[in-house]
């Protein structure tokens, strides 16, 4: 199986975020970045499918130059090679613009599968895989908890709401948006990190892939949400806070 895994670099989860001067994005100069966690599960699924059925895992990343770090980490975990669509101004693209670049780069590879995480931890649109599938003309399914190869294609286990699941048969090529928790993530080995240094990263620019349509949906302003609920905040030494909380649990919440 030839498998492309589209992954994104996002600010580390525990980052303290500040709105930048323009008010349209965050100050990202001093942040540390990591692989978007849902995409890490997609990568792991790709690696496991390759281990079972043979083939190749290609990492595809749309992002600025700094995303090379995340690509190297994916290569260190076992991906065979990578394609980096270098674009410094992701904020200028909407979901269609991003998916178009990803679909164009993926189309050239003639792969069997394109895997992505369910959504990104930054924008959280949860659309890139599905939009790319439509642009590629491939079948797709989302919120996937299991992938098995069948004679004519694949059978996936799709998560429905409220604890329900469903199996779906799909022809290849297909796009799958992988649900977090589908597998157990691996760590890169020392050997893997060493090997990653020699693996191919093909760099493309957005311009090389053809012009993007003008963005239809753009972020006008970002801001810290206004609190709608009155929260009593307790702060101070742990022992003191615990005693005050127990008072409240006893006399206000009445559960003790």
């Amino acid at each position: 199986m030839k498998i492309i895994v589209a992954l994104k670099q996002v600010p580390a989860r525990d980052s303290t975020l500040k709105v930048d001067g323009g008010g349209k994005w965050i100050q990202d100069a001093d942040l540390s970045f990591e692989i978007n966690e849902p995409d890490a599960y997609a990568l792991e699924e790709g690696l496991q499918l390759k281990e079972k059925h043979g083939g190749e895992v290609i990492v595809l990343c749309l992002g600025p130059a700094r995303a090379a770090q995340t690509i190297r980490e994916a290569l260190a975990k076992g991906a065979d090679r990578a394609i980096h669509i270098e674009e410094e101004n992701l904020a200028g693209l909407d979901t269609l613009g991003m998916a178009q670049l990803i679909a164009k780069a993926a189309a050239a590879e003639q792969a069997d599968l394109l895997l992505t995480g369910l959504q990104s931890d930054d924008l959280g649109s949860g659309q890139t895989g599905v939009v790319a599938a439509e642009l590629l003309g491939w079948a797709h399914s989302t919120i996937i908890m299991q992938v098995d190869k069948t004679d004519g294609g694949i059978r996936v286990k799709r998560e429905l709401e409220d604890g329900w699941f469903q199996h779906i048969d799909l022809p290849l090529p297909a796009v799958l948006a992988i649900q977090s928790g589908i597998n157990k993530l691996r760590y890169a080995t020392l050997m893997g990190i060493k090997k990653a240094k020699t693996k191919e990263i093909k760099r493309l620019t957005a311009a090389e892939l053809g012009s993007s349509p003008p963005a239809q949906a753009v972020i006008d302003r970002i801001y810290v949400p206004q609190k709608s609920k009155q929260t009593q905040i307790l702060e101070g030494p742990a022992r003191e806070v615990a005693a005050r909380l127990v008072e409240k649990l006893k006399f206000e919440v009445r559960v003790l």
Binding site: D122, I222, Y223, V224
Partner: peptide, 13 residues
């Protein structure tokens, strides 16, 4: 946005 840490106003054209 960012898992609820920030809100974003989107406009469509």
């Amino acid at each position: 946005l960012f898992q609820g840490k920030l809100n974003g106003d989107m406009r469509v054209s």
